[in-house]
């Protein structure tokens, strides 16, 4: 006779794919590594420490929240770690550590956990944290150092950095800051002012390609987003630039790549169908360019994605796939 004591009974299907939430988040972290390396090369070791502090703060906040509400700890799914890295990446390297920790608290507690945690939050936690920091400490959040300068590892003082501050390319184009535009090549490699993780378009494209290759994201959102920005900046050049030049600066500056590949593709806060993702991407692109051209800020990626996050339920509703075998009439409507 055979031993069936270990046999379990479950509903079908009985096999599952290898990927799980943790492996997906792990892929996202791997995809962020090239940008981390470039950023460290450009701004110094403080980048690593800032990222580590942000990740640690996110994990601690999530643990504390879960303890308080009596939920099993969810940091094992690594989504809080991803939020931590992304939050650090959208802040300037000179931001004091304590502000970053406050930002992490807003990201994890306010934007994510209070809505029920992973999958239930409706706005991107990292961007919500950044929006909060920008509104609370606008100067600290818009103080940029030139590439190659080394911010003190532990220094929290803004004054010591004043001598080497640099404007972001977008601010220069907009005319809200003075300076010479960096060359397109230096922007591709990341040799320009900006938030830690957004400076190198090449590093972010490598990460994005990895995510596409691993099928963590589909091309729909980034293609629609980047495509829309490309078309608009090409047709309506900004700041006295030529058409193509305007497009290249529009694409490779201000964290568009970071936003398109890593933020707008956030599962929880983007549409579920490919059709919806295209609509979402176009919306992000439109808003990004509108904010850059007509808004008070030189940069529009963060707010455009946050605004589009709030429309996801609507997009999902109107881009629902037409079911197989639907009556012909329903098909026409869809």
């Amino acid at each position: 006779m055979y031993d069936f004591s270990k046999v379990v009974i479950t509903s079908s299907p009985h096999i599952k794919s290898k990927e799980d939430t943790r492996s997906i988040m792990c892929d996202v972290l791997i995809a962020l590594l090239p940008s981390l390396f470039v950023s460290t090369y450009v701004f110094g070791l403080r980048v690593i420490l800032m990222t580590a502090v942000s990740v640690a703060a996110c994990l601690v906040f999530e643990t504390i929240y879960n303890k308080i509400v009596g939920k099993a700890n969810t940091i094992g799914d690594l989504s809080a770690a991803v939020t931590g890295v992304l939050l650090a990446f959208v802040c300037p390297v000179t931001l004091p550590y304590w502000m970053l920790i406050v930002g992490a608290g807003v990201s994890i507690i306010l934007a994510k956990s209070l809505f029920g945690g992973l999958g239930k939050n409706f706005i991107n936690p990292a961007l919500a944290g950044r929006a909060f920091l920008l509104a609370s400490w606008p100067v600290a959040m818009t103080t940029w150092v030139t590439a190659g300068s080394r911010a003190g590892l532990l220094s929290n003082s803004q004054e010591t950095l004043d001598a080497i501050t640099a404007a972001t390319p977008l601010a220069i184009i907009k005319g809200s800051a003075e300076g010479d535009l960096p060359s397109i090549a230096s922007m591709l490699w990341g040799m320009c002012g900006g938030s830690m993780g957004e400076v190198s378009a090449i590093a972010l494209l490598i990460g994005g390609a990895y995510l596409l290759f691993r099928k963590v994201i589909s091309f729909h959102t980034p293609a629609a987003y980047i495509g829309t920005v490309a078309v608009l900046t090409l047709l309506f050049p900004a700041g006295g630039l030529g058409h193509v030049q305007s497009m290249l600066y529009g694409l490779f500056s201000g964290g568009l790549m970071l936003g398109a590949f890593f933020m707008a593709t956030d599962y929880s806060t983007s549409p579920v169908s490919h059709k919806g993702q295209v609509v979402f991407g176009i919306g992000c692109g439109l808003l990004t360019v509108m904010i850059r051209y007509f808004g008070g800020y030189p940069e529009g990626v963060c707010y455009s994605i946050l605004l589009m996050n709030t429309t996801v339920w609507l997009i999902d509703k109107y881009t629902r796939p037409t079911k197989f075998g639907a009556p012909a009439k329903q098909k026409k409507e869809g």
Partner: peptide, 10 residues
């Protein structure tokens, strides 16, 4: 926990 990745839709 559903993370809304949308794989099921595809």
């Amino acid at each position: 926990t559903c993370i809304r990745c949308g794989r099921c839709v595809g």
